[in-house]
């Protein structure tokens, strides 16, 4: 049907740019991490350390040094993400490497212990490391599953728009409630006065607000009106009812939005502090090892 001029140089800078952080560059870092883990496991089995594998052997020191180096490098993702320096780096590649190399630490770290655990600073460092990794695994899971839900839920609305539409509904409710009787107005007022997103962390991540005044107001209003005859014409209660319903739907959307956004961040509240705890205990672990050498 037609002829299109070939865009010669236009495509040179953009090759296969559309893959996610897990699939980056054909699972490059998954392959590298798997190889590292394989080498560690095989060498662990075949290298004979007497009397037994432990962190203090030459082999244990090697693994320990690699592990400590990795931990410090993985921590640098936080700096990389925030330092917008020029250069041909890609944060996606960093994330990908962070994930797979971080997972490989399970093998490296565990083999470094030689499976010797106890109630001491050394095992504490190991435990912190595992906490960090496990919280990271949650992070991967959330990052892989939540974005779609977030996108579906917001339906082209921005957070600011959602909050603005809530404010607008509140204004309309306020006006629509003027002709109501005192007890009906009180119902609307309780919806207007409540902070619909207050109530702390658990409510935020669960998205459940059992004491939602808007829902209560609407339910009360409905219950009361269920047996009342319809007056027809311009019943102000009809309008209030419709507005409350709208507000409840909007609240639902905002609460889901906040919940999903919270979930995308909540694991970081463990991951990041634990990382600092890990680095502190790791330092103690290394110093004590050298001190008691």
């Amino acid at each position: 049907m037609a002829s299109v001029p070939v865009p010669g140089g236009a495509s040179k800078k953009k090759v296969a740019m559309h893959d996610g952080f897990l699939k980056h560059a054909g699972y490059r870092w998954l392959k590298i991490a798997s190889f590292i883990m394989l080498v560690c496991i095989v060498s662990y089995l075949f290298i004979d350390v007497s009397p037994r594998h432990n962190g203090g052997s030459w082999y244990g020191y090697t693994l320990g040094t690699i592990g400590a180096g990795l931990i410090l490098w993985l921590t640098m993702l936080g700096v990389r993400k925030r330092a917008m320096t020029p250069g041909k780096w890609s944060l996606k590649a960093w994330t990908s490497a962070h994930i797979y190399l971080g997972l490989s630490l399970i093998v490296i770290g565990t083999l470094h212990t030689g499976f010797q655990f106890g109630w001491n600073i050394h095992t504490a460092a190991y435990a912190f490391m595992m906490f960090v990794i496990i919280s990271g695994i949650f992070g991967i899971y959330f990052y892989a599953t939540i974005p779609q839900a977030l996108s579906n839920n917001r339906d082209e609305m921005t957070e600011t728009q959602m909050l603005e539409s809530l404010r607008s509904l509140d204004r309309q409710l306020h006006e629509a409630a003027q002709p109501l009787s005192a007890e009906h107005a009180a119902l609307v007022l309780q919806s207007l006065e409540q902070d619909p997103f207050g109530g702390g962390f658990l409510k935020r991540v669960s998205g459940k607000y059992p004491n939602c005044a808007t829902r209560a107001a609407q339910a009360d209003l409905r219950r009361e009106r269920a047996y009342q005859p319809r007056m027809g014409g311009d019943d102000p209660l009809d309008k209030v009812d419709a507005l409350l319903e709208k507000k409840e739907a909007t609240l639902g959307r905002v609460r889901r939005h906040l919940k999903l956004k919270a979930l995308l961040q909540v694991w970081l509240f463990i991951h990041v502090p634990m990382t600092f705890a890990l680095i502190a205990s790791l330092s103690a672990h290394i110093i004590s090892v050298f001190f008691y050498w």
Partner: peptide, 10 residues
């Protein structure tokens, strides 16, 4: 694009 951690921005 460089700063996108997940590869969403293209």
């Amino acid at each position: 694009v460089r700063a996108c951690p997940t590869g969403a921005a293209i």
